[in-house]
């Protein structure tokens, strides 16, 4: 470096409005109101008009995007707000999907009943099955969530139950983009609100410092169970809806796509921001459709993208975007 070239450094300053609107809402003008409302408004209206503007071929993709976005949200919530890394989004999808299929084909319930019931029942079962590893710290949760989908595939194959390898066919078609979009938005804003409330604070504390939570007279397992239930509700909802879109629930409901894509989307979108991962899903899922001809190569591609983001510790799109939105940057002489 040239010795007499002047040294400069980039300085970042928060916009004043960020401080005023962070927690204590003291807005002073319509301009500030817009500053706050605009990103949310863009997101909501963008999602709502999406089914109207995309070409017919991509219509179905809108639903897929929302399904994956729900899974992604579930992963981000569990991993970055409770500290439970789930490697098996497919577990939730499969459980929800099979439940929806059973309720619909065997009991003959209409989709508007089978989806909610499958969601709740599935989440209940998932939570129950994951319960043994909740009192433990460390890699156990990741291991067990990784194993369940693989195991269920094998059990269904071997015992030839629930339609065996053919899966359960004849599920009523129910493809309503607005249903899933509104669900996604409701969960997105619901979870965002939850993590900032006292219950969410406790969940974050469980991740940060479980001993102190215990010393405060709160059962870690209880709060983790609540969190896993919330996470699996999102996953199972996605699965149940997916079964009705595909008109089918089968072994591929436990496919790896459902496990790996949400993780990749979270990492790309910005871990721990909740909105970022949803945006990540909006980027990766269309890419997924586009790469469908390449078969399993696309899983390789996500895995590599994921690896690159994890290793080089990219902050993700959302964190980057928020920083640009909330801060000035200028070069100052040193």
């Amino acid at each position: 470096m040239n010795a007499n070239s002047e040294q400069r450094r980039r300085e970042r300053l928060d916009r004043g409005i960020k401080v005023r609107s962070d927690g204590i809402y003291s807005l002073m003008s319509y301009r500030e109101l817009c500053y706050l409302v605009l990103p949310r408004a863009v997101l909501i209206t963008g999602m709502l008009i999406l089914p109207l503007v995309v070409p017919t071929y991509w219509q179905k993709v809108v639903s897929y995007v929302c399904i994956y976005a729900l899974l992604t949200l579930s992963f981000d919530f569990l991993a970055h707000f409770v500290g439970l890394v789930s490697l098996g989004g497919a577990f939730f999808v499969g459980t929800g999907g099979y439940f929806a299929a059973i309720l619909n084909t065997v009991l003959g319930l209409p989709p508007l009943l089978s989806i909610p019931i499958a969601t709740i029942l599935g989440a209940f079962i998932c939570t129950l099955l994951l319960l043994p590893c909740l009192p433990l710290r460390g890699v156990y949760f990741a291991i067990v969530t990784l194993m369940y989908p693989l195991l269920f595939t094998r059990v269904i194959e071997a015992l030839n139950i629930l339609g065996g390898t053919d899966g359960m066919v004849g599920v009523t078609n129910f493809t309503n983009h607005y249903f899933i979009i509104i669900m996604l938005l409701a969960f997105l804003f619901g979870i965002r609100r939850l993590v900032n409330q006292d219950l969410g604070l406790v969940l974050r504390a469980v991740k940060d410092n479980d001993q102190a939570v215990r010393a405060s007279g709160m059962s870690i397992t209880y709060y983790k169970t609540i969190a896993v239930f919330i996470g699996s509700v999102m996953g199972c909802l996605a699965g149940a809806y997916l079964a009705h879109v595909f008109e089918w629930a089968g072994l591929s409901s436990f496919a790896l796509d459902f496990s790996i894509l949400p993780i990749a989307a979270t990492v790309i979108g910005g871990a721990g921001t909740l909105v970022g991962p949803v945006l990540g899903a909006f980027i990766l899922v269309p890419l997924n459709e586009w790469l469908r001809d390449f078969g399993t190569l696309r899983i390789v591609i996500y895995a590599l993208i994921l690896l690159a983001f994890i290793v080089f510790r990219s902050e993700g799109i959302m964190v980057y975007g928020m920083r640009k939105y909330h801060q000035f940057e200028k070069w100052v002489k040193v």
Partner: peptide, 9 residues
Amino acid sequence: VIPLFAPRA
């Protein structure tokens, strides 16, 4: 806030 949220508190 976390201990205040605890059942005993």
